[in-house]
Design a protein around this nucleic acid. Structure first.
Length: 280
DNA sequence: GCCCAGGGAATCG
DNA sequence: CGATTCCATGGG
């Protein structure tokens, strides 16, 4: 599904987007890839990306982006929500495998968000040996204490800011043993040891190796940071959920048709496994 | 109290 | 090599 200009209409201060295909806003924002979106009692989602606050919701006509111009959408939100990618085509390709077809039926509509690479790296360091509610709490405290206050909340602190703090300074966010890892990551981003922008295009093996120069970053966090932060959709993070799911569903090996889109498939399977608790 | 959580490093054998 | 064990913290 690709969006064209004629699907989009300015309604007052809001932007209405129609013809969004199977896109599922709630599943996309709440499938464990991003930790800073919250839904209110009206089903509207609130989040801060970079220095932008957005309120967005989905209804039977499509999406509404509150207080957003067409230009904001084209310059930023379209890319963030990955509306440039043809998910329907990908879903069709991988559905030749019967098991994947079942998972696509369940999980189609999830997009891989194009997040900021530093935020993704930092967030998935915090995720290690942790659960999603607590990850969100830690990240909220990180932003409230070290980010900038803007309309709607706080920005995610920059790598520079975190490179200047101590483990004791981070005690307020209660992230435990991960504090030293976050600071090491920030310093290595700041001094150029980690070239996050370069990792969008360099050979994957080199990018994985570079990510793992950070203390506390192993294969899983490196793959997550590259998938969610650097748009490397061929990355395939394997956590405890995925390990169980892969064994149960595919006897451990992803079908060849899916390997090119491993990151997207991974998110589909993660969602499927988490929602069904893997009663296959 | 015990267990586990979108892991990884250190320390074994 | 593979397999334990520890790491902080908090919720079930």
């Amino acid at each position: 599904m690709l969006l064209y200009d004629n699907s989009i209409e300015q309604v007052g201060n809001d932007l209405r987007i129609r013809n969004i295909g199977r896109f599922d806003l709630a599943a996309t924002l709440d499938c464990g890839q991003a930790f800073r979106w919250e839904m209110d009692e009206n089903g509207k989602w609130h989040g801060i990306v970079g220095n932008r606050y957005l309120c967005v919701w989905q209804d039977n006509e499509g999406l509404v982006l509150e207080n957003t111009t067409y230009e904001d959408y084209l310059n930023f939100w379209k890319g963030y929500f990955d509306f440039d990618r043809d998910y329907e085509a990908i879903d069709k390709i991988i559905s030749v495998d019967p098991t994947l077809s079942k998972i696509v039926d369940y999980s189609a509509g999830i997009h891989i968000l194009r997040q900021d690479p530093w935020e993704a790296l930092c967030s998935f360091i915090i995720s290690q040996n942790n659960n999603i509610p607590r990850i969100k709490g830690i990240i909220n405290r990180l932003c409230e204490n070290f980010g900038d206050k803007i309309h709607g909340g706080y920005t995610f602190p920059t790598a520079y800011t975190i490179s200047q703090v101590s483990v004791d300074d981070l005690a307020v966010i209660r992230c435990g043993f991960r504090a030293k890892y976050i600071i090491d990551a920030a310093k290595k981003v700041q001094d150029g040891t980690l070239n996050l922008e370069g990792m969008r295009s360099m050979p994957l093996e080199n990018a994985l190796e570079m990510m793992q120069l950070v203390r506390g970053v192993g294969p899983k966090v490196a793959n997550c940071a590259l998938l969610f932060g650097c748009s490397r959709i061929e990355c395939f993070p394997v956590d405890v959920w995925m390990g169980r799911a892969m064994k149960a569903l595919f006897d451990g090996e992803l079908p060849d048709v899916a390997k090119q889109y491993a990151g997207i498939v991974q998110q589909y399977i993660f969602h499927y496994a988490r929602m069904t608790k893997l009663n296959v």
